[in-house]
Design a protein around this nucleic acid. Structure first.
Length: 479
RNA sequence: CGGGGCGUGGCGCAGCCCGGCUAGCGCGCUUGCAUGGGGUGCAAGAGGUCGGAGGUUCAAAUCCUCUCGCCCCGACCA
């Protein structure tokens, strides 16, 4: 329960975040190093996220399946870059049933290897393709520095793994998924992400191409919020995923993989949250509106509850995720703060005055205080609340978009770039060389985020070395 | 792994340097009464053997030795 005041966001953003996750009742620290317990309220939020994504994946022909948590350690050695990328963060099971294991088993950090292994068994003919499987579950990476939701040792996600007959189809799949991720962020999470291609140094271990969606947090650091990879035949060759094509010749598959993790919850917190606590976008909020009945005497209570119960039923049957806060051991003021901490988009206050006037007070979470409060008629309340939820959803996206755009600048020269990335994002031409990227990282700690798709092909010069360059990239400090 | 810090009721801490009454405080928790339109008040309660092991001493949260664990900063990261 929210007993003490939250640290101000502007005072200590990191501390604000840590406290908020606990106070909003989303998650708690687990007794295992770097791991979290997602509490019911946090999980309800995650379920709203997953059910939207799951529906989209199914609409586009994907099916769900489950692969084991344990993977033979030797599988990781089959793809050279993949093993280099993941070896340092593997947890390995060495004993079972009281005996040392002959074949050590890795706890999956991601499932390309075991799924690749299975695909090589399952795929024989062009008729078997494409294969479009999604796994929902958790993975484990031995992270050195952890933070609830943003980077925990174990985290929750879906991982899509697809195999195709041609490079064109596989690339199309990568972009199709990236578009779903983009739509999810804009329409559901109200986060204006930028989709683009990762640089060679930032791409997934073993990938041919990595695309990502990148989001700007309130402290202006960047958070990679989802990725979609095209592997070409890298994993197919490592795991012998081959099929006979229509011409009866043996051919390697083209594969992809992609993921959004529970980190996205951290993104929502850091994009929308404020000094009062969490602010959830209505489409994903586990509770979209909460009713706080207010009364002094028993007589008042009876009259107020009669209206409150009626309103509850009306909003519920209109499909609004509604909660009645009828706790009588805490004050109304406490309840207001409590639900604001949890980010509930709309609060419906009903007191004796409202009973008399046939009104209710509505408070919107995105505008705390007097500004966001209005008195409306009890008549047709469901449509009033529904309209308000839509308005809040839109206003969150608008606010986040304006904030993002106000904090992206195009540097005039390298000195300007250094100044910009100290406290915002820079967007500029870059020659795509590792040297220039490394120089920026060493000088400023900022990394390339992504090269946005759909940018006009124009001639420019690299902001670092001055060589001719065709595409612009975002530079920012990342989480 | 390198640099800092910390383990005392559920949480946050004081006490330790200069051993000694029944180990304190705030928050939370329980019960009752009042309160209730922006974090409510009063009263009465429950709850710890001081991270662990060993040692010194008449006496150890406090001194000594060993040990376990955690947090923060850096390298790595969805």
């Amino acid at each position: 329960m929210a007993e003490e005041k939250l640290t101000k966001r502007a005072e200590d953003f990191s501390e604000w975040y840590n406290q908020l996750v606990l106070k909003a009742d989303l998650a708690d620290y687990a007794p295992v190093r770097g791991c979290m317990v997602v509490k019911p309220y946090g999980w309800a939020l995650w379920e709203n996220i997953t059910s939207w994504l799951d529906a989209e994946f199914k609409k586009t022909g994907h099916v769900n399946a489950a692969f084991p948590t344990l993977i033979p350690l030797s599988f990781f050695e089959k793809e050279k870059e993949h093993v280099e990328g993941f070896a340092p963060e593997l947890a390995v099971v060495t004993h079972g049933g009281g005996q040392e294991l002959e074949e050590k088993l890795a706890v999956r950090p991601t499932s390309e290897t075991i799924i690749g292994h299975m695909y090589s068994k399952w795929i024989k003919s062009w008729r078997d393709l494409p294969i479009l499987i999604v796994q929902w579950g958790s993975v484990l990476r031995w992270e050195l520095r952890t933070k609830l939701f943003l980077r925990t040792a174990e985290f929750y996600w879906h991982e899509g793994h697809t195999a195709h007959a041609s490079a064109a189809e596989a690339k199309e799949e990568m972009y199709r998924i990236l578009d779903i991720y983009e739509r999810f962020c804009f329409e559901q999470a109200a986060i204006p992400v930028i989709k683009g291609t990762k640089s060679e140094t930032e791409r997934f271990a073993g990938a041919h191409t990595t695309t990502s969606i990148e989001a700007m947090m309130w402290d202006k650091r960047a958070l990679q919020s989802g990725t979609s990879h095209y592997f070409s035949t890298n994993f197919a060759k490592a795991f012998e995923i081959q099929f006979l094509n229509r011409e009866n010749t043996l051919q390697y598959c083209e594969t992809t993989s992609w993921a959004i993790s529970s980190r996205i919850i951290g993104a929502m917190i850091m994009v929308h949250g404020d000094d009062q606590g969490l602010v959830l976008p209505p489409r994903l909020a586990p509770i979209q509106a909460v009713i706080v009945p207010i009364h002094k005497t028993d007589a008042d209570k009876t009259r107020v509850m009669e209206v409150a119960d009626r309103v509850f039923m009306e909003l519920k049957s209109a499909g609004i995720r509604i909660k009645m806060d009828d706790r009588d051991n805490v004050s109304s003021g406490f309840k207001f703060n409590d639900w604001e901490m949890r980010g509930v988009p709309v609060r419906v206050e009903i007191g004796p005055k409202d009973v008399e006037k046939g009104s209710v007070a509505l408070a919107r979470r995105d505008k705390p205080g007097r500004e966001g409060k209005s008195f409306v008629s009890q008549t047709d309340l469901a449509s009033t609340v529904n309209a308000l939820l839509v308005e809040i959803q839109d206003s969150l996206l608008k606010r986040a978009t304006e904030y993002r755009d106000a904090n992206i600048h195009e540097p005039k020269d390298y000195e300007d770039l250094k100044r910009i990335v100290a406290d915002s994002w820079a967007f500029s031409y870059w020659c795509e060389s590792k040297e220039c990227e490394t120089k920026v990282k060493e000088d400023t700690k900022a990394t390339t985020r992504n090269i946005p798709l759909d940018q006009p092909e124009e001639e420019g010069i690299c902001i670092v070395c001055g060589k001719p360059s065709k595409r612009k990239v975002y530079f920012a400090k990342a989480y």
